[in-house]
Design a protein around this nucleic acid. Structure first.
Length: 277
DNA sequence: CTTGGGACCTGGCTGC
DNA sequence: TGCAGCCAGGTCCCAA
């Protein structure tokens, strides 16, 4: 499932191929992909436009055009393939560019969405801060979590609080910070928030370094897998021994989302600091 | 306002 | 062997 590291990888690897190019041909195979307009209108508006720049905001990929932006969201199973050999059965849209490169949006579960907007804020305006930006500090994180009573796991994946963290990286960050996923967001200590802040940034940076996690259908634009999932400590590892203490990793539901954690390393209650004898 | 739960979608897996 | 039923999860929508 493309979360921040996966979309960041897609952006980075696509950038040299399509920035400065214009759309010469657009084909929509699945009209559900463009909920805001007809396929024909979408096609007509896009053809001839030049891509000025490519950026990521949260889990959104933004193609900046002259006076508009094409915004894609991959949801769970969407992928962008650069010059694929053939068209697979899950292809939802195809793009041709002036330099003869092709891009195919493929999406098994059909949750992915593309929008063409004048103002990107109509789509990404309510997103919380970018966790890897300079302006995201432990103080900002503390302020965001302060007044909330929801489980910290639910807070981390709420895009309006912090942008880009999804189910698997939330579990990884909480494990690294030794925080139980059901702890109340507003009840974390200053020390725990410091630790969580560092863990979020380390987990995301490391995943970007590994070009994302290919746990579902995610592959990079060239078709190669990302390797971040090989380094997962708890995510999708229910029943396996914790890499730190060997306690079996548990799976619970938090807000109806599968949540993996180590019951020993991430205790429900805050541990009192040990006093030396 | 905040929080929680279901819907959407389809392939893969489990169990009868 | 066949197939019903459940599960995966990002976001939207609605209810409490």
């Amino acid at each position: 499932m493309p979360e921040l590291p996966e979309v960041e990888t897609i952006k980075n690897e696509l950038l040299p191929w399509i920035v400065g190019q214009s759309f010469t041909q657009v084909t929509i195979f699945d009209t559900a992909l463009v909920p805001d307009s007809s396929a024909e209108e979408f096609r007509r508006k896009l053809i001839g436009q030049t891509i000025q720049s490519l950026e990521r905001r949260g889990k959104y990929l933004i193609f900046n055009l002259a006076n508009q932006a094409l915004i894609m969201h991959f949801r769970m199973t969407g992928v962008l393939l650069l010059n694929p050999k053939g068209i697979d059965r899950y292809a939802r849209a195809g793009f041709h560019f002036s330099n003869r490169n092709r891009l195919v949006f493929s999406d098994l579960r059909r949750f992915g969405v593309m929008r063409l907007v004048e103002n990107v804020d109509t789509v990404v305006g309510k997103l919380g801060p970018e966790p890897l930006s300079e302006s995201f500090t432990p103080e900002v994180l503390a302020r965001l979590l302060k007044k909330h009573h929801l489980p910290i796991k639910a807070a981390l994946i709420d895009q309006n609080l912090i942008a880009g963290i999804g189910n698997m990286y939330a579990d990884e960050a909480l494990f690294a910070a030794k925080i139980h996923p059901l702890r109340k967001a507003g009840a974390l200590s200053a020390h725990e928030i410091q630790s969580l802040y560092r863990s979020i940034r380390e987990v995301l940076c490391s995943a970007i370094g590994n070009k994302g996690a290919s746990v579902d259908t995610y592959v990079r634009p060239g078709g190669q897998i990302g390797t971040a999932h090989f380094h997962f400590q708890v995510a999708h590892r229910g029943g396996e021994p914790c890499p730190v203490c060997h306690t079996p990793i548990e799976r619970i539901l938090v807000r109806n989302r599968g949540t993996y954690f180590c019951p020993n390393c991430q205790p429900v209650t805050t541990q009192m600091p040990l006093l030396s004898p």
